[in-house]
């Protein structure tokens, strides 16, 4: 019988701890597929951030270093400066990257560090129990915006991809979603492209993935999929914001 589906080699044979309907697992898989595809598993060093994806090292069959909250791009910089011929990626949530780690991500991108960052935007702090994140939508109820996020006092949801796309150091900036098969296929392509950029020494590459957190959204997994379409994508459009071509390298 022909095998049509199997676990990527870059993932370990263990089950994810993520909640039912969580998109972290899908995103892990897409990253692992890109690593397999480029045959770089034994050259790859992952940087885990603080959040629901902290257990990156339990799932990826690659070297992994844990970073303090928000500091993954700085840790990745240190690793990559030592091992220029290795592939270094950071995997960060939106609290981690867009709040406490804003400085580290902007400057790593601006320096054009030749690393890849996968940014999981689920509009909440998942691990700590669903508090407001910088990406929380206006009106969204979280455990720290019980009356809904208001721009008065809480500000607007931060569009990180749009911000980073203004920086010359970025080789690739895209936003994707994984809430239906078509979006997953597109996300797979974009994540692969981001890693290809690094393999080709093109500088900083970045993929933002809109991700469901049914637990903290207090929704069923199916309703969470719909929310990505109905509420998130209109505000956070799926787009390639910046893409250098090989001749741009110089």
């Amino acid at each position: 019988m022909k095998q049509v589906f199997k676990r990527p080699e870059s993932l370990r044979d263990v089950s994810f701890h993520f909640c039912p309907g969580c998109h972290h697992g899908i995103i892990h898989r897409l990253v692992a597929e890109a690593i397999d595809r480029l045959r770089i598993r034994t050259k790859t060093i992952g940087i885990a951030s603080v959040g629901c994806s902290v257990f990156l090292y339990d799932y990826f069959d690659t070297d992994v270093c844990e970073a303090p909250h928000g500091r993954a791009p700085a840790v990745a910089t240190g690793v990559k400066r030592v091992h220029k011929d290795r592939i270094v990626f950071a995997f960060q949530g939106d609290g981690d990257l867009a709040a406490i780690g804003t400085s580290e991500i902007i400057h790593a991108a601006n320096r054009g560090e030749n690393i890849t960052v996968i940014f999981v935007n689920n509009t909440v702090y998942g691990m700590t129990g669903g508090q407001m994140a910088p990406t929380t939508m206006l009106g969204q109820h979280t455990t720290t915006t019980p009356r809904g996020r208001s721009f008065l006092g809480d500000g607007y949801p931060l569009k990180v991809s749009e911000l980073l796309a203004t920086l010359e150091g970025c080789s690739f900036v895209a936003r994707v979603a994984v809430n239906n098969p078509a979006n997953v296929r597109r996300a797979r392509k974009m994540i692969l492209k981001a890693f290809e950029m690094q393999v080709n020494n093109m500088g900083f590459s970045f993929v933002e993935v809109l991700s469901a957190c049914p637990t903290n959204w207090k929704m069923t997994p199916l309703d969470a999929l719909k929310r990505v379409d109905n509420e998130l994508i209109p505000y956070f459009p799926l787009k390639v914001f910046r893409e250098k071509t090989i001749p741009d390298k110089l």
Partner: peptide, 26 residues
């Protein structure tokens, strides 16, 4: 060698963390 002026002391110590994790004297 590599000299990098970081965006903050927080970033610089974490770069040291990364370089050290990668096996280098930092």
């Amino acid at each position: 060698g590599t000299f990098l002026q970081a965006e903050s002391e927080i970033a610089s110590i974490n770069m040291v963390l990364g370089a050290s994790a990668a096996g280098a004297r930092a």
